[in-house]
Design a protein around this nucleic acid. Sequence first.
DNA 1: CACCGTTCAGTTGAACTAAGCAACGGAATTCGG
DNA 2: GAATTCCGTTGCTTAGTTCAACTGAACGGTGGA
Length: 433
Amino acid sequence: MEKDLLADYNEDYNKKPECSDDLDDFFEEFMDSQPIFKDKSVLQSNYLPAKIQHREVYLKEIAKILAPALRKERPSNIIIYGKTGTGKTLCTSYVLNKMTNIATAKSIPLKIISINCKLKRVADTEYRILLEILKELGVEKKASTGYSTNELYKDLYVALDDQKRNIILVLDEIDSLIKKAGDEILYNLTRINPELKKSEITLVGITNDLTIMDTVDARAKSSLNEEEIVFHPYDAMMIQDILNDRAELAFQPNVLDEAVIPKCAAYMAREHGDARRALELLRFAGELAERDGADKVRPEHIDNADKRTERNRILDIIKSQPKQFQLVNYSIIKTSLKEKVNVVTNKKSQIVEPTTTGAVYDYYNKLAKDLRMPTLSLRRISDIIIELEVSGLITFKILSKGRYGRTRFISIPLPKTLYTEVLNILAEDLNLV
DNA sequence: CACCGTTCAGTTGAACTAAGCAACGGAATTCGG
DNA sequence: GAATTCCGTTGCTTAGTTCAACTGAACGGTGGA
């Protein structure tokens, strides 16, 4: 995506401020060099392939459950579990796509609404989800606040009933919604049906977190869990097949070194068979090759891309965080870096060890004062730390140090090489330099 | 040595507040005749 | 007099604060073998 390019652009820019003659050369060379890609969008995560490999069983399962909608009956609600990049979203939208096609062809009343609950500040509270659903139904309410949730529900009933048809509501990444906003909304949504006269609604929840439903109220759980499907990860061979398939469409003929795809697949099978990232990796490797002016994508490009995608992903998350979160994040990293002096050689070296909430808060307090930013209370910082964990930037466990109290031990699951870079980015964003 | 109350450093839940927004209704203003 | 505009009130969400109860294991003292 553009973000990758941007990040790399910045990097290149910092590295070598070239003069314009070089640039001219570069562009000429670029134009002359053979294109690597045929159609890059094939490798994008939102690309919907014509055929989905190795998920036939799941496709059929989803189709079987949802098919009644085409007979104007209400399908069961489904929860779909599975780790990231196992094709949950892909399969669901594939099936639903097919169904919409049939529905429009035979003028069967069917409406599909998909919402990604993970989109920050768009759909991560009950209120905002409802607003989003209403928007999808064509009811525009521009206000981001001001109505009561109850009123939104009332509007929703009316809007749904107005549709006079079967409605399938897909809630992607429903776990982050439940974690943030609680299970109230699920309960309410599952109870809409009896209220509707002319329409019927089916919920499809998609989640990465296999345990999330344990935290949900039993009443909502029983009605939502009418059916459940668990997606298992791809193995290396499957990923390889998928990559081959897409590579054929995405790349020019003969630009891929034959070792590239196996290597890419092996990389990704290592971490629970995430196909999305495998495709991303392949695309990025292609881009790197293109930028190098290479005529082929080689295994080195994969190595290179692997290092950078992880980095870009993290930097993206960090950059998109609100200021106070960044401040806390910065404090966490700063307080977990400690100088250690080797007694024998008397050399100083930086080591990383878990920090505690107290240390972070002290540091944060000082920093916020220096920056003349509002200082939030310890209570709030505690919550922010939890939210940072949810977004995967830190991990912690609560430990009791006996009579020395109880606190979170916060550690950062980043490769050490990234620490300084992350610090720099944060410092820049916070105007700390 | 085993047991038990104490203690620390946060953690966590609940109640509360400020800011931002919409809707409502009445008061003030404008308008056209 | 009717239509508009303006303004204050009410009621809502969200982000944050304040208060206070709660936590869990190490510490340190006690008692018992």
